[in-house]
Amino acid sequence: MSWLYLGIAVIFEVAVGLFASKANGFTRLWWTIATLVSGAIATFFLSLALLTFDVGVGYAIWTSVAGVGIVIVGALFLDQRLNWRKALGILIVIGGVVGLQLSGAA
C-alpha cells in the first residue's frame, strides 16, 4: 500500500511541475489552482507513504522518479528537449539529493 501512496505522490509531483509551467507565474487561474491542488495532494500522499517507508529512502525515491518524470513530461508536453549538458546537470543534482537523503539523519 505504501508503494501505491508513493506512486500517487510521484504522479502529482510531476503534475506540479507541468502545471506550474502552464500557470505562467500564477497569471492563469485554472492552471494555478491545478498547481496548488496537485502540490497539496502530492504532499499528503508522500506523508502517508513516509509513515511506513524510511523517510530518507522514501523521499529519495520520490524526488528522483519525479525529477525524471518531469523531464519526460517537459519533452512530451512543453517541447523542452534537453541537450547532454542539461541532462548531466539534472542527473548530478538529483543524484546529490538522493545521496543526501540516503546518507541518513534525515
Binding site: 506540479v16 511541475g17 507541468l18 506550474a20 509551467s21 500557470a23 505562467n24 507565474g25 500564477f26 494555478t32 498547481t35 496548488l36 502540490g39 497539496a40 504532499t43 524526488t63 519525479a66 525529477g67 518531469i70 523531464v71 513530461v73 517537459g74 519533452a75 512543453l78 523542452q80 534537453l82 542539461k86 546537470g89 539534472i90 543534482v93 538529483i94 546529490g96 539529493v97 543526501l100 537523503q101
Partner: peptide, 30 residues
C-alpha cells in the same frame, strides 16, 4: 507552500521545467 509554488511558476516561464524542478528540489534539500 503558496510562496514556493508561486516563485517556481514565475521561474518556469523562462527556465525548462526539468532544470527548474531539479534546482528547486536541490536547493530545498540543501
Amino acid at each position: 507552500f503558496l510562496l514556493t509554488l508561486f516563485c517556481l511558476s514565475v521561474a518556469l516561464k523562462t527556465i525548462d521545467v526539468g532544470i527548474g524542478y531539479a534546482v528547486w528540489a536541490g536547493i530545498g534539500a540543501v
